[in-house]
Design a binder for these strands. Structure first.
Length: 435
RNA sequence: GCGAGGAUAGCUCAGUUGGUUAGAGCGCCUGUCUGUGGCACAGGAGGUCGAGGGUUCGAGCCCCUUUUCUCGCCCCA
Protein backbone atom coordinates (compact mmCIF):
# COMPACT_ATOMS: atom_id res chain seq x y z
CA UNK A 1 0.00 0.00 0.00
CA UNK A 2 1.38 3.38 -0.97
CA UNK A 3 1.19 6.63 0.96
CA UNK A 4 -1.60 9.06 0.20
CA UNK A 5 -0.72 12.30 -1.58
CA UNK A 6 -3.76 14.08 -0.13
CA UNK A 7 -3.13 16.91 2.31
CA UNK A 8 -4.60 16.53 5.78
CA UNK A 9 -8.39 16.83 5.94
CA UNK A 10 -9.53 20.42 5.77
CA UNK A 11 -6.05 21.75 5.01
CA UNK A 12 -4.61 22.86 1.70
CA UNK A 13 -1.36 22.40 -0.18
CA UNK A 14 -0.15 25.56 -1.81
CA UNK A 15 1.48 24.73 -5.12
CA UNK A 16 3.49 27.63 -6.58
CA UNK A 17 0.51 29.03 -8.51
CA UNK A 18 -1.65 28.84 -5.37
CA UNK A 19 1.07 30.40 -3.27
CA UNK A 20 1.43 33.25 -5.77
CA UNK A 21 -2.27 33.97 -5.34
CA UNK A 22 -2.03 33.80 -1.57
CA UNK A 23 0.96 36.12 -1.67
CA UNK A 24 -0.95 38.56 -3.86
CA UNK A 25 -3.86 38.63 -1.44
CA UNK A 26 -1.62 39.11 1.56
CA UNK A 27 0.29 41.85 -0.28
CA UNK A 28 -2.92 43.78 -0.91
CA UNK A 29 -3.90 43.37 2.73
CA UNK A 30 -0.49 44.39 4.01
CA UNK A 31 -0.14 47.46 1.79
CA UNK A 32 -3.61 48.64 2.68
CA UNK A 33 -3.37 48.33 6.45
CA UNK A 34 0.16 49.70 6.47
CA UNK A 35 -1.10 52.78 4.65
CA UNK A 36 -3.21 53.43 7.77
CA UNK A 37 -0.18 52.98 10.01
CA UNK A 38 -0.81 49.45 11.23
CA UNK A 39 2.23 47.43 12.30
CA UNK A 40 2.66 43.71 11.86
CA UNK A 41 3.12 41.34 14.79
CA UNK A 42 3.04 37.57 15.20
CA UNK A 43 2.81 35.00 17.98
CA UNK A 44 3.10 31.24 18.55
CA UNK A 45 0.56 28.94 16.96
CA UNK A 46 0.20 27.12 20.30
CA UNK A 47 -1.45 28.81 23.26
CA UNK A 48 -2.43 27.59 26.71
CA UNK A 49 -6.00 26.34 26.78
CA UNK A 50 -7.07 28.85 29.44
CA UNK A 51 -6.53 31.73 27.05
CA UNK A 52 -9.59 30.71 25.08
CA UNK A 53 -11.79 29.54 27.94
CA UNK A 54 -12.69 33.01 29.17
CA UNK A 55 -14.29 34.66 26.19
CA UNK A 56 -14.33 32.49 23.10
CA UNK A 57 -17.66 30.65 22.91
CA UNK A 58 -17.81 27.35 24.81
CA UNK A 59 -18.59 25.18 21.83
CA UNK A 60 -15.65 26.53 19.89
CA UNK A 61 -13.23 25.79 22.71
CA UNK A 62 -14.60 22.42 23.79
CA UNK A 63 -15.42 20.82 20.47
CA UNK A 64 -13.80 22.76 17.67
CA UNK A 65 -10.19 23.16 18.70
CA UNK A 66 -7.10 21.06 18.29
CA UNK A 67 -6.32 20.65 21.97
CA UNK A 68 -3.88 18.29 23.64
CA UNK A 69 -1.51 17.84 26.52
CA UNK A 70 2.14 18.45 25.86
CA UNK A 71 4.82 16.15 27.25
CA UNK A 72 5.00 18.23 30.38
CA UNK A 73 1.28 17.84 31.08
CA UNK A 74 0.31 21.37 29.96
CA UNK A 75 -3.01 21.76 28.19
CA UNK A 76 -2.41 23.52 24.90
CA UNK A 77 -4.51 24.58 21.93
CA UNK A 78 -3.62 25.32 18.34
CA UNK A 79 -5.02 28.83 18.08
CA UNK A 80 -8.53 28.95 16.58
CA UNK A 81 -8.54 32.75 16.45
CA UNK A 82 -6.10 35.57 17.07
CA UNK A 83 -8.01 38.07 19.20
CA UNK A 84 -7.24 36.47 22.60
CA UNK A 85 -3.58 36.23 21.62
CA UNK A 86 -3.24 39.85 20.58
CA UNK A 87 -5.06 40.89 23.74
CA UNK A 88 -2.57 38.86 25.74
CA UNK A 89 0.36 40.53 23.98
CA UNK A 90 -1.05 44.00 24.48
CA UNK A 91 -1.86 43.31 28.14
CA UNK A 92 1.70 42.12 28.73
CA UNK A 93 3.01 45.54 27.72
CA UNK A 94 -0.05 47.52 28.70
CA UNK A 95 1.93 50.34 30.35
CA UNK A 96 4.72 50.80 27.86
CA UNK A 97 2.99 50.69 24.46
CA UNK A 98 2.27 53.92 22.58
CA UNK A 99 -1.45 54.48 22.11
CA UNK A 100 -3.44 54.48 19.95
CA UNK A 101 -1.99 51.17 18.99
CA UNK A 102 -2.53 49.90 15.46
CA UNK A 103 -1.55 46.26 14.93
CA UNK A 104 -2.15 43.62 12.31
CA UNK A 105 -1.20 40.02 11.65
CA UNK A 106 -1.98 37.25 9.15
CA UNK A 107 -1.86 34.09 11.26
CA UNK A 108 -2.91 30.61 10.25
CA UNK A 109 -5.68 29.35 12.48
CA UNK A 110 -7.09 25.86 13.08
CA UNK A 111 -10.54 24.62 13.93
CA UNK A 112 -11.61 21.02 14.31
CA UNK A 113 -14.82 20.88 12.32
CA UNK A 114 -16.38 19.38 9.22
CA UNK A 115 -15.06 21.22 6.16
CA UNK A 116 -17.60 22.98 3.97
CA UNK A 117 -17.74 25.77 1.45
CA UNK A 118 -15.63 28.69 2.60
CA UNK A 119 -14.70 26.98 5.87
CA UNK A 120 -11.84 24.56 6.16
CA UNK A 121 -9.89 23.38 9.18
CA UNK A 122 -6.91 25.61 8.51
CA UNK A 123 -7.16 29.12 7.20
CA UNK A 124 -5.25 32.35 7.27
CA UNK A 125 -6.90 35.41 8.66
CA UNK A 126 -5.91 39.03 8.50
CA UNK A 127 -6.46 40.51 11.95
CA UNK A 128 -6.60 44.29 12.23
CA UNK A 129 -6.96 45.86 15.66
CA UNK A 130 -7.00 49.38 17.02
CA UNK A 131 -6.43 49.78 20.76
CA UNK A 132 -6.85 52.79 23.01
CA UNK A 133 -9.64 54.76 21.33
CA UNK A 134 -12.93 54.78 23.21
CA UNK A 135 -14.95 56.79 20.73
CA UNK A 136 -16.67 56.00 17.46
CA UNK A 137 -13.74 57.29 15.39
CA UNK A 138 -12.11 53.91 16.05
CA UNK A 139 -15.01 52.02 14.47
CA UNK A 140 -15.04 54.48 11.61
CA UNK A 141 -11.37 53.83 10.88
CA UNK A 142 -11.62 50.06 11.24
CA UNK A 143 -14.52 49.88 8.80
CA UNK A 144 -12.72 52.30 6.53
CA UNK A 145 -9.72 49.95 6.52
CA UNK A 146 -11.97 47.01 5.64
CA UNK A 147 -13.50 49.05 2.81
CA UNK A 148 -10.07 50.10 1.57
CA UNK A 149 -8.94 46.48 1.35
CA UNK A 150 -12.03 45.62 -0.66
CA UNK A 151 -11.39 48.63 -2.89
CA UNK A 152 -7.76 47.63 -3.41
CA UNK A 153 -8.89 44.17 -4.43
CA UNK A 154 -10.90 45.90 -7.14
CA UNK A 155 -14.30 45.36 -5.54
CA UNK A 156 -16.99 47.94 -6.20
CA UNK A 157 -19.77 48.93 -3.83
CA UNK A 158 -22.43 46.89 -5.63
CA UNK A 159 -20.45 43.73 -4.94
CA UNK A 160 -20.75 43.82 -1.16
CA UNK A 161 -22.63 45.41 1.71
CA UNK A 162 -21.33 46.46 5.10
CA UNK A 163 -23.86 45.73 7.84
CA UNK A 164 -23.70 47.58 11.12
CA UNK A 165 -25.29 47.10 14.48
CA UNK A 166 -24.81 47.97 18.11
CA UNK A 167 -24.89 45.14 20.60
CA UNK A 168 -25.56 47.63 23.35
CA UNK A 169 -28.62 48.84 21.49
CA UNK A 170 -29.81 45.33 20.76
CA UNK A 171 -29.38 44.35 24.40
CA UNK A 172 -31.37 47.38 25.53
CA UNK A 173 -34.11 46.62 23.07
CA UNK A 174 -34.34 43.06 24.32
CA UNK A 175 -34.24 43.94 27.99
CA UNK A 176 -36.06 47.29 28.18
CA UNK A 177 -38.35 47.27 25.18
CA UNK A 178 -39.23 43.57 25.07
CA UNK A 179 -38.57 43.16 28.81
CA UNK A 180 -36.78 39.84 28.55
CA UNK A 181 -34.69 38.11 31.18
CA UNK A 182 -31.01 37.25 30.73
CA UNK A 183 -31.54 33.66 29.63
CA UNK A 184 -34.22 34.63 27.14
CA UNK A 185 -32.00 37.35 25.76
CA UNK A 186 -29.14 34.97 25.16
CA UNK A 187 -31.30 32.35 23.49
CA UNK A 188 -32.95 35.00 21.40
CA UNK A 189 -29.65 36.54 20.28
CA UNK A 190 -28.62 33.15 18.90
CA UNK A 191 -31.98 32.79 17.20
CA UNK A 192 -31.77 36.27 15.69
CA UNK A 193 -28.31 35.42 14.39
CA UNK A 194 -29.73 32.47 12.43
CA UNK A 195 -32.83 34.26 11.27
CA UNK A 196 -31.89 34.74 7.64
CA UNK A 197 -31.33 30.99 7.30
CA UNK A 198 -34.89 30.07 8.21
CA UNK A 199 -38.44 30.61 7.01
CA UNK A 200 -40.31 33.41 8.72
CA UNK A 201 -42.93 31.01 10.10
CA UNK A 202 -40.20 28.81 11.51
CA UNK A 203 -38.52 31.78 13.09
CA UNK A 204 -41.80 32.96 14.60
CA UNK A 205 -42.50 29.52 16.03
CA UNK A 206 -39.09 29.35 17.68
CA UNK A 207 -39.35 32.91 18.89
CA UNK A 208 -42.74 32.09 20.43
CA UNK A 209 -41.30 29.15 22.29
CA UNK A 210 -38.65 31.43 23.76
CA UNK A 211 -40.97 34.31 24.53
CA UNK A 212 -44.22 32.69 25.62
CA UNK A 213 -43.04 31.41 28.99
CA UNK A 214 -42.67 35.00 30.02
CA UNK A 215 -45.77 36.46 31.52
CA UNK A 216 -45.35 39.73 29.67
CA UNK A 217 -47.63 41.28 27.12
CA UNK A 218 -49.11 39.21 24.31
CA UNK A 219 -47.89 39.29 20.68
CA UNK A 220 -44.34 39.68 21.82
CA UNK A 221 -42.99 37.70 18.91
CA UNK A 222 -44.79 40.01 16.48
CA UNK A 223 -43.36 42.97 18.28
CA UNK A 224 -39.95 41.34 17.92
CA UNK A 225 -40.49 40.71 14.24
CA UNK A 226 -41.48 44.34 13.68
CA UNK A 227 -38.32 45.34 15.45
CA UNK A 228 -36.14 43.09 13.35
CA UNK A 229 -37.68 44.36 10.15
CA UNK A 230 -36.52 47.88 10.88
CA UNK A 231 -34.14 48.84 8.10
CA UNK A 232 -33.14 52.26 9.32
CA UNK A 233 -32.14 53.79 12.60
CA UNK A 234 -34.87 56.40 12.12
CA UNK A 235 -37.57 53.77 12.41
CA UNK A 236 -36.55 52.58 15.84
CA UNK A 237 -39.16 52.87 18.61
CA UNK A 238 -39.53 56.50 19.69
CA UNK A 239 -38.11 55.97 23.17
CA UNK A 240 -34.79 54.91 21.67
CA UNK A 241 -34.26 57.91 19.43
CA UNK A 242 -32.04 59.54 22.05
CA UNK A 243 -30.20 56.40 23.10
CA UNK A 244 -26.42 56.88 23.18
CA UNK A 245 -25.89 53.94 20.82
CA UNK A 246 -28.25 55.45 18.28
CA UNK A 247 -26.23 58.64 18.34
CA UNK A 248 -23.05 56.66 17.85
CA UNK A 249 -24.51 54.71 14.95
CA UNK A 250 -25.65 57.96 13.37
CA UNK A 251 -22.21 59.52 13.63
CA UNK A 252 -20.58 56.34 12.35
CA UNK A 253 -22.84 56.09 9.33
CA UNK A 254 -22.56 59.79 8.52
CA UNK A 255 -18.79 59.72 8.75
CA UNK A 256 -18.55 56.63 6.57
CA UNK A 257 -20.77 58.32 3.98
CA UNK A 258 -18.40 61.28 4.01
CA UNK A 259 -15.57 58.84 3.28
CA UNK A 260 -17.62 57.67 0.29
CA UNK A 261 -18.34 54.34 1.92
CA UNK A 262 -21.98 54.27 0.95
CA UNK A 263 -22.72 50.55 0.81
CA UNK A 264 -23.59 50.42 4.48
CA UNK A 265 -26.73 49.21 6.08
CA UNK A 266 -28.12 49.20 9.61
CA UNK A 267 -29.07 45.64 10.57
CA UNK A 268 -30.50 45.21 14.01
CA UNK A 269 -30.36 41.44 13.72
CA UNK A 270 -26.58 41.39 13.29
CA UNK A 271 -25.12 39.65 16.35
CA UNK A 272 -21.89 37.77 15.59
CA UNK A 273 -20.95 34.74 17.59
CA UNK A 274 -18.16 35.76 19.92
CA UNK A 275 -19.12 36.68 23.46
CA UNK A 276 -16.42 39.32 23.74
CA UNK A 277 -18.04 41.84 21.41
CA UNK A 278 -19.71 44.46 23.57
CA UNK A 279 -20.77 47.37 21.37
CA UNK A 280 -20.63 48.18 17.65
CA UNK A 281 -20.35 45.10 15.42
CA UNK A 282 -20.12 44.97 11.64
CA UNK A 283 -20.10 42.36 8.94
CA UNK A 284 -19.27 42.44 5.24
CA UNK A 285 -21.66 40.49 3.02
CA UNK A 286 -21.11 39.28 -0.51
CA UNK A 287 -23.93 40.50 -2.74
CA UNK A 288 -23.32 37.87 -5.40
CA UNK A 289 -26.42 35.64 -5.69
CA UNK A 290 -24.27 32.49 -5.67
CA UNK A 291 -22.42 33.47 -2.51
CA UNK A 292 -24.81 35.62 -0.55
CA UNK A 293 -23.16 35.19 2.77
CA UNK A 294 -21.18 36.92 5.42
CA UNK A 295 -17.53 37.12 4.46
CA UNK A 296 -15.89 38.71 7.46
CA UNK A 297 -16.52 41.15 10.24
CA UNK A 298 -15.56 42.51 13.59
CA UNK A 299 -16.44 44.98 16.25
CA UNK A 300 -15.60 46.44 19.62
CA UNK A 301 -14.38 44.18 22.42
CA UNK A 302 -13.36 46.51 25.21
CA UNK A 303 -13.25 43.92 27.95
CA UNK A 304 -10.71 41.46 26.67
CA UNK A 305 -7.39 43.09 27.57
CA UNK A 306 -8.63 43.65 31.13
CA UNK A 307 -8.92 39.88 31.64
CA UNK A 308 -5.16 39.76 32.04
CA UNK A 309 -5.28 41.77 35.23
CA UNK A 310 -4.38 45.12 33.72
CA UNK A 311 -6.45 48.23 33.23
CA UNK A 312 -9.05 47.58 30.50
CA UNK A 313 -8.33 49.00 27.07
CA UNK A 314 -10.82 50.09 24.41
CA UNK A 315 -10.37 47.73 21.46
CA UNK A 316 -11.86 47.53 17.98
CA UNK A 317 -10.92 45.09 15.26
CA UNK A 318 -11.87 42.67 12.54
CA UNK A 319 -10.70 39.44 10.97
CA UNK A 320 -10.70 38.62 7.27
CA UNK A 321 -10.25 35.01 6.20
CA UNK A 322 -8.32 34.00 3.10
CA UNK A 323 -10.79 31.35 1.91
CA UNK A 324 -13.89 33.50 1.92
CA UNK A 325 -11.96 36.36 0.33
CA UNK A 326 -10.64 34.07 -2.38
CA UNK A 327 -14.16 32.82 -3.08
CA UNK A 328 -15.33 36.40 -3.35
CA UNK A 329 -12.52 37.43 -5.69
CA UNK A 330 -13.02 34.39 -7.91
CA UNK A 331 -16.76 34.87 -8.13
CA UNK A 332 -16.44 38.54 -9.03
CA UNK A 333 -13.59 37.92 -11.46
CA UNK A 334 -11.19 40.05 -9.49
CA UNK A 335 -8.22 37.72 -9.42
CA UNK A 336 -5.40 39.03 -11.59
CA UNK A 337 -3.03 36.83 -13.54
CA UNK A 338 -0.04 36.72 -11.32
CA UNK A 339 3.33 36.31 -12.96
CA UNK A 340 5.90 34.00 -11.47
CA UNK A 341 8.87 35.63 -9.76
CA UNK A 342 11.20 34.22 -12.40
CA UNK A 343 11.83 36.81 -15.12
CA UNK A 344 13.89 34.76 -17.54
CA UNK A 345 14.28 31.08 -18.41
CA UNK A 346 17.70 30.43 -19.90
CA UNK A 347 17.66 27.85 -22.68
CA UNK A 348 21.07 26.31 -23.32
CA UNK A 349 21.76 25.20 -26.86
CA UNK A 350 24.47 22.63 -27.18
CA UNK A 351 27.02 21.77 -24.52
CA UNK A 352 27.49 25.29 -23.18
CA UNK A 353 26.60 24.97 -19.51
CA UNK A 354 30.11 25.69 -18.27
CA UNK A 355 30.54 28.72 -20.50
CA UNK A 356 27.07 30.09 -19.70
CA UNK A 357 27.53 30.30 -15.94
CA UNK A 358 29.21 33.69 -16.00
CA UNK A 359 26.70 35.47 -18.15
CA UNK A 360 23.80 34.08 -16.11
CA UNK A 361 25.47 35.16 -12.89
CA UNK A 362 25.84 38.63 -14.41
CA UNK A 363 22.11 38.77 -15.16
CA UNK A 364 21.32 37.97 -11.55
CA UNK A 365 23.88 40.49 -10.36
CA UNK A 366 22.04 43.09 -12.41
CA UNK A 367 18.75 42.25 -10.75
CA UNK A 368 17.00 39.65 -12.90
CA UNK A 369 15.59 36.40 -11.58
CA UNK A 370 16.93 33.74 -13.90
CA UNK A 371 16.29 29.99 -13.99
CA UNK A 372 18.53 27.84 -16.17
CA UNK A 373 17.66 24.67 -18.03
CA UNK A 374 20.64 22.38 -17.64
CA UNK A 375 18.76 19.34 -18.93
CA UNK A 376 20.51 19.23 -22.29
CA UNK A 377 17.18 18.58 -23.97
CA UNK A 378 16.24 19.85 -27.37
CA UNK A 379 15.36 23.52 -27.60
CA UNK A 380 11.62 23.02 -28.04
CA UNK A 381 11.40 20.96 -24.85
CA UNK A 382 13.22 23.62 -22.91
CA UNK A 383 10.89 26.32 -24.23
CA UNK A 384 7.91 24.20 -23.31
CA UNK A 385 9.13 24.05 -19.73
CA UNK A 386 9.28 27.85 -19.65
CA UNK A 387 5.77 28.09 -21.08
CA UNK A 388 4.41 25.64 -18.54
CA UNK A 389 6.01 27.50 -15.68
CA UNK A 390 4.38 30.70 -16.93
CA UNK A 391 7.71 32.49 -17.37
CA UNK A 392 7.43 35.29 -19.90
CA UNK A 393 10.98 35.46 -21.26
CA UNK A 394 13.28 32.87 -22.72
CA UNK A 395 16.97 33.63 -23.21
CA UNK A 396 18.82 31.50 -25.75
CA UNK A 397 22.45 30.83 -24.99
CA UNK A 398 24.47 28.91 -27.57
CA UNK A 399 27.94 29.06 -29.07
CA UNK A 400 26.82 31.81 -31.42
CA UNK A 401 25.66 34.06 -28.59
CA UNK A 402 28.64 33.36 -26.35
CA UNK A 403 31.06 34.27 -29.16
CA UNK A 404 29.29 37.46 -30.24
CA UNK A 405 28.06 38.47 -26.73
CA UNK A 406 24.74 39.24 -28.36
CA UNK A 407 22.08 37.10 -26.77
CA UNK A 408 18.70 36.12 -28.13
CA UNK A 409 15.80 37.10 -25.89
CA UNK A 410 12.29 36.03 -26.72
CA UNK A 411 9.05 37.19 -25.17
CA UNK A 412 6.83 34.14 -25.09
CA UNK A 413 3.67 36.18 -24.76
CA UNK A 414 4.20 38.44 -27.77
CA UNK A 415 6.48 36.06 -29.65
CA UNK A 416 8.93 38.92 -30.28
CA UNK A 417 12.56 37.80 -30.49
CA UNK A 418 15.59 40.10 -30.50
CA UNK A 419 19.39 39.99 -30.17
CA UNK A 420 20.97 42.29 -27.62
CA UNK A 421 23.81 42.78 -25.19
CA UNK A 422 23.36 41.60 -21.62
CA UNK A 423 22.90 45.19 -20.40
CA UNK A 424 20.19 45.88 -22.93
CA UNK A 425 18.39 42.63 -22.12
CA UNK A 426 18.36 43.52 -18.44
CA UNK A 427 16.73 46.87 -19.12
CA UNK A 428 14.16 45.36 -21.52
CA UNK A 429 13.11 42.75 -18.98
CA UNK A 430 13.06 45.26 -16.12
CA UNK A 431 10.87 47.62 -18.14
CA UNK A 432 8.54 44.76 -18.92
CA UNK A 433 8.37 43.78 -15.27
CA UNK A 434 7.07 47.24 -14.37
CA UNK A 435 4.10 46.98 -16.71
C1' G B 1 -21.57 15.65 16.26
C1' C B 2 -26.03 15.01 12.39
C1' G B 3 -27.97 14.61 7.13
C1' A B 4 -27.60 14.13 1.60
C1' G B 5 -24.65 13.08 -2.73
C1' G B 6 -19.96 11.62 -4.97
C1' A B 7 -14.99 8.67 -5.59
C1' U B 8 -13.44 4.94 -12.75
C1' A B 9 -6.27 7.15 -16.58
C1' G B 10 -2.48 13.10 -14.59
C1' C B 11 -7.45 16.23 -15.34
C1' U B 12 -12.86 16.35 -16.75
C1' C B 13 -16.04 12.49 -17.25
C1' A B 14 -18.83 8.05 -20.13
C1' G B 15 -19.58 2.95 -18.82
C1' U B 16 -26.64 -0.21 -20.96
C1' U B 17 -31.03 -5.32 -16.75
C1' G B 18 -24.35 -7.71 -13.33
C1' G B 19 -21.60 -10.73 -18.86
C1' U B 20 -15.23 -11.11 -23.52
C1' U B 21 -9.34 -7.69 -23.03
C1' A B 22 -12.92 -0.91 -18.87
C1' G B 23 -13.46 3.83 -22.89
C1' A B 24 -13.52 9.26 -24.74
C1' G B 25 -11.69 14.30 -24.76
C1' C B 26 -7.79 17.05 -22.91
C1' G B 27 -2.93 16.40 -20.88
C1' C B 28 1.80 13.46 -20.89
C1' C B 29 5.94 10.84 -23.70
C1' U B 30 8.33 9.77 -28.63
C1' G B 31 8.95 10.88 -33.72
C1' U B 32 8.25 13.87 -38.35
C1' C B 33 11.89 18.44 -36.53
C1' U B 34 19.74 17.35 -32.81
C1' G B 35 18.93 26.57 -32.83
C1' U B 36 12.77 27.99 -31.20
C1' G B 37 6.67 26.82 -27.67
C1' G B 38 1.23 27.23 -29.08
C1' C B 39 -0.45 24.21 -35.11
C1' A B 40 -0.63 19.50 -37.92
C1' C B 41 0.27 14.30 -38.66
C1' A B 42 1.93 9.37 -36.85
C1' G B 43 2.88 6.31 -32.80
C1' G B 44 3.16 5.23 -27.40
C1' A B 45 2.81 5.00 -22.06
C1' G B 46 -0.57 5.30 -18.29
C1' G B 47 -6.24 1.84 -14.38
C1' U B 48 -5.28 -3.67 -8.58
C1' C B 49 -12.54 1.19 -11.13
C1' G B 50 -10.72 5.03 -3.19
C1' A B 51 -9.77 0.76 0.56
C1' G B 52 -11.55 -3.85 2.97
C1' G B 53 -15.16 -7.64 3.20
C1' G B 54 -19.70 -10.07 1.19
C1' U B 55 -23.46 -11.97 -2.60
C1' U B 56 -22.79 -14.38 -7.54
C1' C B 57 -20.66 -19.10 -12.39
C1' G B 58 -19.28 -13.91 -13.12
C1' A B 59 -19.02 -7.24 -9.77
C1' G B 60 -16.82 -0.70 -12.06
C1' C B 61 -22.28 -1.82 -11.44
C1' C B 62 -25.73 -5.19 -5.93
C1' C B 63 -25.00 -5.43 -0.10
C1' C B 64 -22.01 -4.14 4.44
C1' U B 65 -17.87 -1.56 6.66
C1' U B 66 -14.29 2.21 6.16
C1' U B 67 -11.51 6.47 4.28
C1' U B 68 -12.06 10.79 1.75
C1' C B 69 -14.34 14.85 -1.16
C1' U B 70 -18.61 18.09 -2.03
C1' C B 71 -23.02 20.46 -0.23
C1' G B 72 -26.04 21.48 3.95
C1' C B 73 -27.21 21.40 9.57
C1' C B 74 -25.13 22.51 14.37
C1' C B 75 -21.65 26.25 15.38
C1' C B 76 -18.93 30.22 13.63
C1' A B 77 -13.85 33.13 11.39
Amino acid sequence: MSLSTEPYKGARDFYPEDERLQKYMFDVMRHTVESFGYEEYDAPILEPLELFLAKTSDEVVNEQTYAFEDRGGRKVVIRPEMTPTVSRMVAAKRQELAYPLRWYSIPNLWRYERPQRGRLREHWQLNVDLFGIDNIAAETEIIQVAGAIMHNFGATHEMYTIKLNSRKLLDQLLSDYLKLGDVQQQTLRRLIDRRNKMEESEFLAEADSVLNPSQHEANLSEKLLDLLNIKSIDNLPAEFKDHASVHELNILMTDLQKLLITNIEFDISLVRGFDYYNDIVFEVNDNHPDNNRSMFGGGRYDGLVGLFGVEPLPSVGFGMGDITMKNFLELHNLLPNIRPETDVYAVLIGDVASKAHTVIADLREMGLNVAVDFSGRKTDKQIQSAVKKGIHYVLFIGEKELDSEQYTIKNLITGVEEQHSIQRIVSIVKDYRQQ
